[in-house]
Amino acid sequence: MDENSVSFGYEDVAPDEKTRRVGAVFSSVAKKYDVMNDAMSGGMHRLWKDRFVRRVKPRPGERILDMAGGTGDIAFRLEAAGASVTVSDINQDMLDVGLDRAVARGIDTLVWSRQNAEELSFEDRSFDAYTIAFGIRNVTRIDKALAEAHRVLRHGGRFFCLEFSTTQWPGFKEVYDVYSHKLVPKIGAKIAGDAESYQYLIESIRRFPDMPEFERMIREAGFSQTKVEPIMGGLVAIHSGWKV
């Protein structure tokens, strides 16, 4: 892959093409996104997100940007702790699902904003914390998104990312590879009527940098005191860093 291309699953494509294709994927799966998360993870994604938010330690009144937070799963948890949360996503269909879910829950304190993670419209040092869950691997230029996360955080602000990685558990990795490549697209076809989008989502996990490499990228964006917390041997990982 050269500097003029990025990965879209197992393909290398032009950056604009990836942005377009990823947009189409999430517009297609938006309405069934949370149902599919339950089906694919056996409900474990809820536990991972709970653990993630515990690491963030949201506090009453602090400003948090939840990027790629379309359907509101992380934002609802942050808001429950009293934080002032801005939910941002590049995909309006995902945001619409989140808005509907917020209305159904009687939550009217969230700010919803369509944003490209690589070119945020917020001013410098606008937020106390930046969160992104299962979204960074779909960004076209990850380095630009990390740089923007650093820019919009105040000094002393914290960055948290929950993302799939590569499990190191012996035996489990092989089983998971078979499950994800063979069964997940079939589940996607049955529940969401879209096998191809879920094929891409699995491939995007395989192409995402491993834990040490992604931690290096976070440090290169300017963050200090970086940390990686593997879950299930690294199947999922919580990455964090501070702007100091």
Rank of each mutant, 00 (worst) to 15 (best):
D66N: 07
D16V: 10
N4M: 11
A133L: 01
Y198P: 09
E203C: 03
S7Y: 13
I238N: 06
H45N: 04
A75K: 09
S28A: 15
R154T: 11
D38S: 05
Q115G: 03
V103P: 00
M44H: 08
G171H: 07
D66P: 10
V178A: 11
D50I: 05
E79G: 02
F172D: 05
D73E: 11
I205G: 01
V22E: 05
R21F: 02
S28V: 01
G171L: 11
Q225C: 02
A83K: 09
A189N: 12
G82E: 11
P60W: 04
E163T: 11
L95A: 00
A30V: 04
V244C: 09
R101V: 02
L153I: 12
R141E: 14
A14E: 15
S240F: 07
A14R: 14
G193I: 08
V6G: 05
L65G: 12
D194P: 05
K227S: 14
S126R: 10
T71K: 09
L153K: 08
P230Q: 08
E11N: 12
L146N: 08
C161L: 12
T19S: 14
T226D: 03
G171K: 07
K32T: 12
M232H: 07
L162N: 03
G9W: 05
R51P: 00
D34M: 06
V178Q: 01
L235K: 10
L201R: 09
V236M: 07
R207N: 02
V6E: 09
G69T: 01
Y10E: 08
L99E: 13
G188C: 03
I90L: 06
R158K: 14
S7K: 12
K227L: 13
S165E: 00
D108R: 13
P15R: 05
E213F: 05
L201E: 06
D89I: 06
E213A: 15
H239I: 06
G72I: 04
E203Y: 00
D89W: 02
M36F: 02
P230E: 07
G82T: 12
I187D: 06
N91F: 00
I218K: 00
I90P: 01
G42W: 04
V6I: 13
Y176F: 14
V56F: 00
D50E: 14
N91D: 10
L65A: 13
I142F: 09
A80Y: 01
P212G: 05
D210V: 08
F127N: 06
C161Q: 00
T109K: 13
L201P: 11
G9D: 09
F122R: 03
A14P: 07
R154D: 07
K186D: 03
F172A: 15
I231E: 07
E119L: 08
I142T: 15
R114P: 05
I191Y: 02
E118C: 04
H150Y: 15
Y179L: 06
L120G: 00
S165Q: 05
D128G: 13
V111L: 11
G72W: 01
Q199D: 09
S165V: 02
F76E: 03
P212S: 09
S165I: 01
G193E: 10
F26V: 04
D96T: 13
G188H: 03
E11M: 12
L47T: 10
F208A: 02
A195Q: 11
